[in-house]
Design a protein around this nucleic acid. Structure first.
Lengths: 225, 225
DNA sequence: ACCTGAACACCGTTCAAGT
DNA sequence: ACCTGAACACCGTTCAAGT
């Protein structure tokens, strides 16, 4: 129970941008967005807070870099087959990374460096092209898919975090939302009340894929004009 | 040039939750998310930082309340006509509020109180029902539309903020993104390069509406199974 | 019941000083 | 060239004390 019995292992390698980013990801995963602190980070890296600034410009740069690293890893893992299957695969891949690393969701939207966004756009864009979507419609199609993928994934991850904050697991959380919605004023919220039941026992990933198919079918049906 | 010549007008009314939320919105609009501070807020309200805690539980509650107030205002302004037109109207309404109040975008995603989300879901859900979408597809349809609307609007607002940070107007910013993309490695980023030209002179709001139509056509085409 | 404002335990960031 | 760690100017939040 010694005051501070060498909590972190003695530093073996010298500091580097990559080692800092790697440690940041671990910190973000274990303690969330608010857990990434220059003090916590320098503790883990067995150095002082000032040292980090030699390799990283500031906190938002650090967050963007961590985000890019995680996204790049996922994009590289995606196997390219048919356009539809590839889009589904990359969508599910992103859904799962964001679920595993909830901080990626919010970091992506406000990402000052655009690189992770461009990575995703490129991959989806190539498939949209392969589908034979005419030039003028490519931008809107890719935009719709990306907004959907990132939007739903972020919301899903935010729900998961919110649930965790309240000490519930996912199904307890959905249960709570479901009953809250079913108690809304039926005059003002008829629709929310009517879908309250559906929300309880649905599969987030399946619904997510159903939405992708919906958008893909919209893209294909308006392809011939 | 007196040290501090009564910067804020003397308080006339007593403090209240509504007055605090109103002042928070002004502060968020004028100085962004980082401008909302208990000290800045209490200055503007001519009181001490502790007083605010009598009416508000904490900062995230305050942000959620400000967000809800702005969203509720927009939703109430939307005129209901045909389902398609109503969905377009509410989508454009949200696009514009989020453009005007960029902080709403990020606050909506991580909103711990779900009320603004439910407001939007209810409005869109009623239109989806009116379109005759079968029960099992309603959830996915509404989810796709909401994710698209909030996703694109938030991204658009984030771009605007990013541009402002760098002291550029919107078209200068798009110009910069366009040239950055056109300089990407053609082997790795063929698609991004090819759409780089399109990004320069496009109308964000028009593209946004095109995406809505795309999703609506997907919803309608899969409606009969 | 409502407000005050000092105090606490944090932040990100800087920078003289070291090696 | 790279690292150290004290110091600065902030935060959100609490709470004894006032009215």
């Amino acid at each position: 129970m010694g005051k501070k019995a060498r909590s972190s292992p003695r530093r073996e390698e010298s500091l580097s941008r990559d080692r800092i980013i790697e440690a940041s990801i671990e910190l973000l995963d274990s303690s969330g967005e608010s857990g990434l602190t220059f003090r916590a980070l320098s503790d883990r890296l067995a150095t002082g807070p000032g040292a980090i600034y030699w390799h990283i410009v500031n906190k938002s740069d650090l967050l963007a870099a961590a985000c890019d690293a995680v996204v790049a890893r996922t994009m590289n893992e995606t196997v390219v087959t048919t356009p539809e299957a590839t889009i589904q695969a990359v969508a599910l891949g992103l859904f799962d990374v964001i679920d595993e690393h909830p901080w990626v969701g919010s970091a992506l939207t406000s990402s000052p460096g655009l690189s992770p966004i461009v990575r995703i756009l490129e991959c989806i864009g190539q498939q949209i092209r392969a589908l034979g979507v005419p030039d003028e419609q490519q931008w809107a199609s890719v935009g719709a898919l990306m907004a959907y993928i990132l939007g739903v994934s972020s919301q899903n991850a935010a729900n998961g975090q919110l649930a965790r904050t309240r000490g519930l697991d996912r199904s307890d959380f959905l249960e709570a939302v479901s009953t809250a919605w079913s108690q809304l004023d039926p005059r003002e919220y008829p629709f929310a009340r009517s879908v309250a039941g559906q929300i309880r026992d649905h599969d987030d990933r399946m619904d997510f894929l159903a939405g992708i198919d919906l958008i893909l079918s919209g893209i294909k049906s308006s392809r011939g004009r």
